[in-house]
Design a protein around this nucleic acid. Sequence first.
DNA 1: GGCCTTGTTTAACCTATGTGAATTCCAGCC
DNA 2: GGCTGGAATTCACATAGGTTAAACAAGGCC
Lengths: 246, 246
Amino acid sequence: MRGVLHPNLSPGDIWLRRLSDLMDLSDGARAAVREAVSAPRNYQPREHIVRDGLEDNAVRVLLSGFACRYKYLPDGSRQITAFIVPGEICDFAFLSDSSASQSVVTLTQSSVGTVDLDRLAGIVEQFPDVMTAILRCAAIEHGASIELLVSLGGRNALHRVSHLLCEMHFRLSQSGLVREDGSFDLPLTQAELGEALGLSTVHVNRTVQVLRRLGLATWRDKVVTLPDPQGMQALCSFDAGYLQSR
Amino acid sequence: MRGVLHPNLSPGDIWLRRLSDLMDLSDGARAAVREAVSAPRNYQPREHIVRDGLEDNAVRVLLSGFACRYKYLPDGSRQITAFIVPGEICDFAFLSDSSASQSVVTLTQSSVGTVDLDRLAGIVEQFPDVMTAILRCAAIEHGASIELLVSLGGRNALHRVSHLLCEMHFRLSQSGLVREDGSFDLPLTQAELGEALGLSTVHVNRTVQVLRRLGLATWRDKVVTLPDPQGMQALCSFDAGYLQSR
DNA sequence: GGCCTTGTTTAACCTATGTGAATTCCAGCC
DNA sequence: GGCTGGAATTCACATAGGTTAAACAAGGCC
């Protein structure tokens, strides 16, 4: 039956889509990429995908669900450093076998595909554009960290929250996960948002309510709607440049 | 006279030292790297090395002096995202012609060497280890951003300041810029420290004084001394892992 | 239907850090 | 030897956001 019911669907498609957005890829490269992604493995919510940056010679791509990267602080609290949405690479340590030990954990039920590192090396050798695309992923990921750093260092709570909502809106729309009416699933708790934005749960809540009162955002049952995306972006001076390839 | 007075000194040496620390390089690779670095160009304090991420096909390496990378916030204030010390690459945008527009500006009189991108491509092709070393630089740089992000999101003022001092101590010692007695030049103003750590100048000052009273750090005339590095590291749970290659 | 559990919301109070404005310090300079 | 300008320091006061705890809502489960 393999391939009969979904002759054109493969787990690697979502990653392929992401890479193709960042770099024009030849048909050969496209085929190689999509075939390189393994059968997905499923994860429960709060299950670790990567622990302390320890790897096993594979690139992991989130195929569905929601995850985050984080580091622990000495007092036991957790600083979330990035949210990971479908189509994105979970951890870029493979690029340099670096030792910056972050962990990656799911926030919802998720599925993850893996690409064997040796196999990827072969693909990259044959199709250098794939390496370019991956480096662009890494650069965007770095750009997003920097933007979060800027939020933490220089923006107040209202701007932090709205900037993050704008970012998620943009990223999820890239992956085709924003609905017609502008709403999208954001399966985070307010506590988790706080762990990323350096805010207490209570204050995240206060801030979300301000956005509601301003008519700029609603967030109920894990669904966010931005009725006035322009106004939202204006509020926090959001500019998606850092999420795009030039 | 060229080469006579300093037969073994070349502007590229400091970069070579850095790359060699991160990756064992063959003699051929070493020679290629050191010869690839152009004659240094000098910069005055507060002069831009890179503006808005705009490039001109060259990698820039800080050879001497002190610089920082930053982004402006909408209110005109500046968030410093990284300090750059001698031997480090000013901007990694060349790796992916990314569009995350940061600027790099000197903090002191500095000299900068450039490596032509085409030439670097040739070197990398012949000596892939050089690429590995550069990717490790990039990973460490990313690790440092993440650590700053963690500081801003989760550490109080005292921990932020001491963590940064520990980091500078470590990085400068890697470049051989820490003296026997443990002191090192830190040519920043307290205002600039605040722009990196998300603190007001006044509060940076208060915090430095606490460190002085604790006997953990002195900072006078742009010279920092950490009389008790262990104690300092313990105070802020500093772990240099993120600054090293595994 | 009652009862956990997890997440959101509200309220009262507290504190780390910001702000604005002097003041002091010091290095260069005329 | 006084003047100037940037940096460090001090002081008085303001506030954004943290903390603790309690109330509330809703989904799963026996």
